[in-house]
Simulated assay, not measured.
Amino acid sequence: MTQPGQEHEQSAATGASVNTQGAVDLSSLAGGSAAPAASSAPSAAAHGQPSQASPSAQGGADSWVLAVQPPQLQEVIQLSAQVPVVLVIHDGGEASQQMRGTLGEAVDAQQGRVLMAELDAAVHPEIAQQSQGQLPVATAFLGGRPVGEFDAQISADQLRQLVEQMVQLATQNGMTQRMPAQSRRAVDGAEGHQEPEIPPLHQKAHEALEAGDYEGAIAAYDEALRENPGDSDAQIGRAQVQLMSRTRGVDLETVRTAAAEAPDDVEAQIAVADVDVLGGHVEDAFTRLVGFIRTHHGEDRERARAHLVELYSIVGDTDPRVNKSRQQLARALF
C-alpha cells in the first residue's frame, strides 16, 4: 500500500514544481519520525493578516491556521494522518510575515482540507538555534512524515502550488476529510458580520488538549454530549482524544510482538489497530479487526466490532476506506 509520504517523495524526485533549495530539515524538532494520529487540533489559535489575533475576537472568517508551542509539535505531526499539515517556524521579520500571510491564505482557501501550524521561534531560542537561523522555514507533513521543507527562497506562487499539491496527494491517497476551523481570521468589512464561534465546551476540550490534559479534554466532550447527545463533533472529538490517550508512550514493536504471540487476544489486536491508525495504515487496522471478527465469537467479537466502529468515526464516514471496510464487516458478521 502506497503511503502518502512515499508518493510525495516520488513526486519530488521526478521534478515537482516546488523549489526546496536552501530548505532546513525540521523533522528532528518533533522528536524524529513519529507515527501520526487522527486527532483533534491541539488548540484553536487565531490568525490575523498575517499576525495572530485573539481567538475571542468577534467577526472575521473561519481559518485553519493555529498557533502551537514546542510540546505540541508531536500532535501537529499526528494531525497529518487526517489532513496535510504545514508547520511554519517564524520570527518577527518581514520574510516571515510574507510567508505566513501567503500560506495562511492558501490554506484557508482549501476550507479544511489542509491545516497550517505556526511556531514563533522568537520566544523559543532553542527552536531558532536548531533551525540555524534560517527563518522562516516550513515543513509539509503528510501521513505523519515530512514530505518537504521550504524556506524564504520559495516564491509566493510556489507556496500556493505547494498547498494545492499537498491536497491533491492527500486525495489520491484516500484522505478526503475536512477539519473544522481552528481559529478566526480578520477580514475587511467583517465588523458587521459575525459567524458562530466554537462551542464553549469544545473550546474547553481544545484548551485541555493543548495543555496535554487528555482526561480534561474527554471530560469536556462528555459534558457537551450530556447537553446534546446528538453532537457528532463532540462524539468524534472524544474518540480522537481517547485514541491519542491510549497510544501515548506505546512502543510499536512491543504491541506488534504481543499481537503476533496472542492472535486470540482481542485487546492485543485492538492495540495494533490503534497504532496502525496512528501510523496512517488505516486499511491495515481495519483488515486486522475485520479478520478477528470473522474468526471469533462472543464478547471478544463484539469488543472488536465496537472498537472498529469507533475507528471508523475517527477516520471519517466519508473516507472510501471506511465504506470499503463496512462492506467487509457486514460480510464477516453475516
Rank of each mutant, 00 (worst) to 15 (best):
W64V: 07
V88Q: 13
W64L: 03
V65Y: 05
G60K: 08
V86M: 10
V85D: 05
A67N: 15
G60Q: 12
I89G: 10
L79T: 12
I77Y: 07
V68G: 09
D62H: 13
H90I: 00
S80G: 02
G59N: 08
D62Y: 14
V76T: 11
I77F: 09
S80K: 06
A61S: 15
Q58K: 14
V83G: 07
G60Y: 11
D62L: 10
V83Y: 08
V65S: 08
V68I: 15
G59D: 09
A61M: 14
W64D: 03
L79D: 11
P84V: 00
V76Y: 03
V88Y: 05
P70N: 05
V83N: 07
G59S: 08
L79Y: 00
V83K: 08
L73M: 04
V86P: 00
V83P: 03
A81N: 06
I77K: 11
L66Y: 08
I89K: 01
Q72I: 01
I77V: 15
I89M: 11
P70V: 07
P71D: 06
Q72Y: 01
V76I: 13
V68R: 03
Q82W: 00
P70C: 05
Q78A: 15
G59Q: 10
V65C: 13
G59T: 08
S63Y: 01
V86A: 06
P70T: 05
W64H: 09
S63E: 11
I89L: 15
Q69L: 09
Q74N: 08
I77P: 00
D62T: 12
L79A: 14
G59H: 10
A81Q: 05
P84F: 04
L66A: 12
A67P: 00
Q82L: 14
V85S: 03
V83E: 09
E75R: 15
I77Q: 12
G59P: 07
V68S: 09
Q78T: 00
A67Q: 14
L73P: 07
Q72R: 06
G60R: 10
P71S: 02
P71C: 01
L73F: 06
V85K: 02
P84H: 03
A61N: 14
Q72N: 10
V86W: 07
G60V: 06
D62P: 11
L66R: 04
V86S: 02
V83T: 13
I77W: 13
L79V: 03
Q69K: 14
Q58N: 11
A67H: 05
V76A: 12
Q58F: 13
A61E: 15
Q72D: 07
V65G: 06
P70R: 06
G59I: 08
P70D: 09
A67G: 11
A67V: 11
A81H: 05
V65F: 06
Q82M: 13
H90M: 04
V65N: 10
L73V: 04
